[in-house]
Amino acid sequence: MKKVINAQHIHKTFAAEKEKVMVLKGVSTTIYKGEFVSVMGPSGSGKSTLLYTLSGMDTIDSGEITFNDQSLTVCGETELSDIRRQQMGFVFQQPTFLKNLAIIDNIVLPALRDNRKKGKELANKAKQLLERTGIGDLAYRMTNQVSGGQLQRAGICRALINEPKMIFADEPTGALNSKSAEEIMKNFLQINQEGTTILLVTHDAKVAAQSERVLFMKDGQIVDELHLGKLSNPFLENRTEKVTRKMLKVEM
């Protein structure tokens, strides 16, 4: 299988006041094309930092990260921006948008940067994505005129507008109620089924259980891993139980 991300021995330190805190302590992992991987772990374990470093949004102190065989550690700021815009998609815990643009404009934003003349085409594509995620009628609303769940789905549409090779999601259901969270996960599963690789950070065992592989982190290291395989709905409760048990073991 083709490797999308290959990370080897990555270290990351944060300087806080007078002392330094090592957040990632020699993490190595590989994510393959078409996979849906979750990262779980207690607060402060370094899971979000891992996501930000693997996507090139944050720098590392040492180690090596490649994305589609291209080394991210040697790329300059502009190159990294190009990779993020053209090959990656991001969904954040708090859906962050430009508040003075309509939802559809926020969605086409990363694509318009390179294709100013294709506004109409991109708008149609954004509308299709909105339809697919079930919020087709909200295209021209402002971001403060829709609910958190709807906004998160708009965030997924934005992540998909450039047809990325991989989506990074940092606790995408963390700020949502359970019904909205379920709908968001349905969207992710559908995207994954269509071939997009997903790396998702979560606290929620039920969310992690829907991915095919779960990485468990503790104190800046990947300490365990659980292979669940592709999800088939009748067995979701079993998978959630497995993830919970593993998580408890990690935390002990």
């Binding site: 949004m57 700021e77 502009t78 921006s81 190009d82 990779i83 993020r84 815009r85 053209q86 990656m88 991001f90 954040f92 962050t96 948008f97 430009l98 934003l109 990363p110 940067r113 934005r158």
Partner: peptide, 11 residues
């Protein structure tokens, strides 16, 4: 957010 979705410093 703009940087995350690929806008450069020049942008």
């Amino acid at each position: 957010m703009l940087k995350a979705i690929g806008f450069t410093n020049q942008d």
